[in-house]
């Protein structure tokens, strides 16, 4: 849960930080390996911490402008998004919007346009905040994070971000692509704003529907954010098979059952955006909307 308006915990003068600006990824990783240092990318999260007088590491290693860190590259099988890509750039990426609309929708739903110009995808994910929007979409999409330390690299699922070590950084985010002869993918991100205005979500849901080349449902996926431990992937075991048998795509019964499971398997917390009970109902509703839109997009066959 994110609270921007908490009462200041400590009000004494702030200890100044040291900011290091490496020129390459390797140099950044060496600096991180040296000890009490943290990555700074867009700097928005660190600035909020500082504002709230929450403890900040003495040394910050700036990675937001490292060469190659803010590029999006495409192969036949995946799209690789650099951790330094700003959410404003992601939101405006037309090719990504065609392949994974849910990801551009989630990026475009964060805060305001002015803030999205500063926030990086890597910073948004690494903050490990259950209310953040992009991780919900990425979890539903089955994205993988490429993580590096000075000596080696590994990949993490979005849900494992809590295991990111201090000496590691996220280098990029990888989304799978489906070959045209393998069927189609539709996805949708839904963010419920109680006031109808930009802010943190009351609930946020990402959904993916994969159809095979004949149009039968091959796979369904749902992830829910703004809940304890979020984003939480919903266990939809057996539902894709049930839907796949129904001619003409996914029917309402399957969507209702998926929405029911989303509500049942998640634990929202009550806050200014609604009570836990209210949010549980909203999770079902927005899961339904996300899956319905994702199914329509998959049927249209363009990802949209």
């Amino acid at each position: 849960m994110t609270t921007l308006d908490r009462a200041l915990e400590h009000t004494g003068p702030l200890e100044p930080s040291m900011l290091l600006t490496p020129h390459s990824l390797d140099e950044a990783l060496r600096l991180l390996a040296a000890g009490d240092a943290a990555v700074v990318a867009g700097g928005v999260g660190h600035t909020l911490r500082r504002h709230d007088r929450r403890p900040c590491p003495a040394t910050l290693v700036s990675v937001g402008r490292l060469p190659g860190f803010d590029t999006v590259t495409w192969t036949d099988t995946e799209v690789v998004i650099g951790a330094g890509v700003r959410l404003s750039a992601l939101e405006a990426d037309v090719r990504l919007a065609a392949a994974w609309p849910m990801v551009t929708e989630a990026a475009g739903s964060v805060a305001t346009a002015r803030i999205r110009r500063m926030v990086t995808l890597g910073g948004n994910i690494a903050a490990d905040d259950d209310s953040h929007d992009p991780p919900v979409a990425l979890a539903a999409a089955g994205a993988r994070l490429t993580v590096r330390d000075a000596l080696s690299g590994r990949t993490l699922a979005i849900g494992d971000i809590g295991g990111l070590r201090r000496d590691e950084l996220i280098q990029d985010v990888r989304l799978p692509l489906t070959a045209p002869d393998q069927g189609t993918v539709g996805s949708s991100f839904q963010k419920f704003l109680v006031r109808g205005l930009w802010e943190y979500a009351c609930v946020n849901v990402g959904a993916v529907v994969r159809l095979d080349a004949r149009g039968a449902v091959r796979d369904l996926s749902l992830a829910v954010g703004s809940v304890t431990g979020g984003p939480v992937p919903v266990d939809l075991a057996g539902l894709a098979e049930e839907a796949g048998e129904a001619a003409g795509g996914i029917d309402d019964r399957v969507i209702d059952e998926a929405a029911r499971r989303a509500a049942e398997q998640t634990s929202p917390y009550g806050d200014v955006r609604g009570s836990a009970a209210y949010k549980t109902r909203m999770i079902a509703e927005f899961a339904r909307r996300a899956l319905t839109t994702a199914a329509l997009r998959a049927a249209e066959g363009t990802g949209r």
Binding site: L19, G43, I115
Partner: peptide, 18 residues
């Protein structure tokens, strides 16, 4: 809001070192 490298951003979130 100020303009940094041509883009309007909130100065309160902009770390000076960056």
């Amino acid at each position: 809001t100020v303009i940094v490298d041509g883009e309007a951003v909130p100065a309160c979130l902009q770390m000076v070192g960056l």
